[in-house]
Design a protein around this nucleic acid. Sequence first.
DNA 1: TGGGAGTGCTTTTTT
DNA 2: AGCACTCCCA
Length: 712
Amino acid sequence: MSDLLANLNPPQLQAVTLPPVHALILAGAGSGKTRVLTTRIAWLISTGQVGPHGVMAVTFTNKAAKEMTARLSALVPINVRGMWIGTFHGLCNRLLRAHYREAGLPQTFQILDSADQLAMVKRLLKNLNIDDEKYPPRELCHFINAHKEQGVRAGQAEVYDHYTQKRVEIYAEYEAQCNREGVCDFAELLLRCFELLQRNEPLRTHYQQRFRHILVDEFQDTNKLQYAWLQLLAGGGARLFAVGDDDQSIYRFRGAEVGNMRDFERDYCADNIIRLEQNYRSHGNILAAANAIIKYNRERLGKNLWTDAGDGEPIRAFEAYSDIDEARFIVDEIRELVRDGVPATQCAILYRSNAQSRVLEHELFTKGVPYKVYGGLRFFERQEVKHALAYLRLLGNPDDDTAFLRVVNFPTRGIGARSLENLQAAAHQMNSSLYNAAASLTGKAGQTVGAFIRLVETLRQETEKLPLPEIIEHVVEKSGLAQHYRLEKEGQERLENLDELINAAATFVDDEGAIGEGGALASFLAHASLESGEHQAGEGQEAVQLMSVHAAKGLEFDIVFISGLEQGLFPHENAVSEGRDGLEEERRLMYVAVTRARQRLYLSCAQTRMLHGQTRYCTASSFFDEIPEELLLKLNKKAAAPAPTWGGYAAASSEPVAGGLRVGQSVEHAKFGLGVIVATEGRGADARVQVNFGGGAGMKWLALEYAKLTPV
DNA sequence: TGGGAGTGCTTTTTT
DNA sequence: AGCACTCCCA
């Protein structure tokens, strides 16, 4: 016990040993948030205040849930296995599986991932004869998800114009189709679980009384529905322990409501707010920069990180001539650091958008520096894996049209678009699934589709008694998938991934042991949907880490490079154009990026950058101005004179149009102020230039004959 | 059916 | 620029 609480600082100790009250823990970056969370659970259990059975801990990512489970089991000698520790979606899935009947779902209901959802919406639009240009499927998905995340069903949606009217109708159709097929998208897991508890009093009471302590990680990332779900579960006297950092809220764009923290404060615990402000990660200068930046945000709950680790090194700033030049600088620095003994895995290059990784990768590759890029296609999202899963889904639930369409003609078996159109029409008319409607097809289509149906039936019979990994092996082979990839030129890797899928199933069976409702196959499919898998190869290699700032949240490195710090890129122009809220979110993003660094932080920008196939002329990010000068060490003292190493491009296109005005030239306009010429057109009297005046006047085309531009 | 050409989009992302 | 997606033809 004393061991458990040893080495906690006073606020940490206070948070961990709080009596059974609602509490909000404002945990700054690197302040030991996960430690407090897990120790709190361990303390509650080991002091006998609650059994493992009475605790629920909710996170956002599987990774966080796993880490919490691992750390908890190291702290208390209990079996952590059966505890309700997981993601919002994972826990809702668990609850819905246990009460599928009450929730109105088939026992083996499947989970649609975002790609499946998109496919379903597209299919729906086609069936309903709706123009997908006027109603873009992606937008519709967002519309549907946003409504579900607000807890709003199609029937309750607000309609304020014709366009929305139509979108709500599509939403309603989508709901109906999901119900017909017995599938749930991600948001549906939460909403359905919420509605189930709300509607079903005995069930609600049961869980309300069961969970005495509910702990939430990354509370600033919760959306409306998640908060409502928590409130509902806590309605029977459970204590909510919310840990979060409003300064690290960077997921507004996908529905996170920072406002939930304020609401939580109001709704539950005006008196029990604890701030964890001592940072154990970064040196003083890094924290000073982070604090200075985030201070520009308004409406913060207020927090100031400090450390007793000393100031450390100054923050290194570098202004490159081009993105290529920037990459060269970063890679050279890394090579030097590695030569000096810094492990490559402790060097991270962060960027605002993934497109920026290309140039960096190119340079790393050229110089022979091993690197690993995070983000991108994950294991369970690979097409061959999704194909295999689709066959498996059909075994469990033939009504799953998404799965049906995915593999009905893959590998090809002569079922063309025409046959499928007929089939979809028939299904629509019979109000049944495609699988069911197949029997009604006549002629050639009837034969080919019939053969497919028989294939699935045969597969189901043959695999009925087999253990999970063998089911998959059998299906992969007999469906023709394996043969298809054997014959494909580049199919080797795909075959390996299919083998890996079988391995994953074997591991899953070993790990999970107890198989939930609906059998091993259903559990595994849910697992595949909910955990798309950090199943990436090349783990543990000595490699430089490349990732977006978002992806870096929660991680830390000795050396961090934040690249592309240019106005319009970081802060991103789309965010800036959203106004103050947008800019503030960018600032939080910058705050997250800065606080990833333990020892040394590099900030870099480029004067020109290739973006969307065009050279852009950039000014340094406004975030540079928000960092006190004395914290910065400017690495390129050489003035920003036209570079001899100008990367080769851009020079040609920047011939002066008149009076020495050329692309890249900074100019001043009497009305619009300072700007940079980004494009030119014509010569002499007809010459026009496009000038970027930044936030104020924006982009303007000006005729040189009339507009007075002074080079600066 | 399948591939080649043409078209359009392009912040961040977990479940 | 690079990628995904569609369309059209052999």
